[in-house]
Amino acid sequence: MQISFSGKTALVTGAGSGIGEAIALELGRAGARVIVADLHPDTAAAVADRIVAAGGQALPGAGDVSDPAVVERLVAEAVVAGGRLDLLVNNAGISGPMAPLGEYPLEGWRQVMGVNLDAVFYGLRFAIPEMLKSGGGAIVNMASILGSVGFANAGAYVAAKHALLGLTRTAALEYAAKGIRVNAVGPAFIDTPLLANLPEGAKEALVAAHPVGRLGQPAEVAALTLFLLSDQAKFINGSYHLIDGGYCAQ
């Protein structure tokens, strides 16, 4: 199945590494003009340079997406670069502190909600009006398996991902008739830099929790995301797609 995004403009947040990087690179290979957004300007620029070096079109964008002004600016930069905005991947996320809810740090809660939930709303809020101007578009919100199950000591992350699914379904209902599709992807534990600093033995325990016996790869999440963004998925809207090696089947 050949997917092409030729002539389309895409904005991907959290695209400097891991899942976001893989999505941005694949969008570039498929012909999209990609705005590579990340908190860190150097990593955003490095990914954008890789897309351009491979013959694609990309520009870096930097800033903290928990700030609505930053997200508004990134959307505006995408529109200026491409003349329109067709595709949005709300991918930026942080894991946050690990603690029981009765001890959870208040600042940690605010930070997780700011990046994992508020930023998704800001993406929808500012991207949807631009998509409407050009007749529609497609949005993928990066959820998690923890949008459907709990996980001890990760209350803020779990709450944000559950709420993200509500935003996804509501946006899908509100804009389906106007040509905008909104879906969510729910990865299990993916082998990304987020897992680099796990204590000894923790990574092995995560691997064992997946029936397939391994962690997922960013490229696998990117493949599903690109399908959902593409016209091949034009009858898929308001849904939540697990990519979890059987984790939630247990």
Rank of each mutant, 00 (worst) to 15 (best):
A62S: 14
G61W: 10
G7W: 09
Y175E: 11
A62H: 11
G216R: 12
G213R: 10
I128M: 07
F5D: 05
F151W: 15
G55T: 03
I3G: 04
G31N: 13
L124E: 10
K161E: 03
L146M: 01
A143C: 02
L146R: 05
T9S: 07
A48W: 01
Q217K: 15
A78N: 10
F121D: 12
V75P: 04
A184E: 07
E174P: 05
H162Y: 15
A249E: 10
E72K: 15
L229A: 08
G93T: 04
Y122T: 09
F189H: 05
G238V: 02
G135Y: 14
D38P: 01
S66Y: 07
P211L: 13
G16F: 04
L39V: 04
A92G: 06
P97C: 08
L206V: 03
R214C: 01
V182T: 00
Q111H: 06
L195H: 09
D67S: 12
A172G: 10
L165I: 13
E200F: 05
G31I: 02
L229C: 05
G216Q: 00
Y175N: 06
N90P: 06
V182K: 02
M142Q: 06
L39R: 14
G245I: 07
R181C: 14
A177C: 02
A222Y: 05
V115T: 04
D231F: 02
I236Q: 11
L87E: 00
F227T: 00
Q2H: 14
F189A: 11
G102L: 14
L27G: 02
L146F: 13
G93S: 01
I139W: 00
E72Y: 03
E220F: 11
L87K: 08
A163T: 10
D64T: 04
L215M: 12
G123A: 06
G213M: 01
L27Q: 09
Y157H: 12
A99V: 08
I243P: 01
L85K: 10
D38V: 00
R110T: 12
H210M: 13
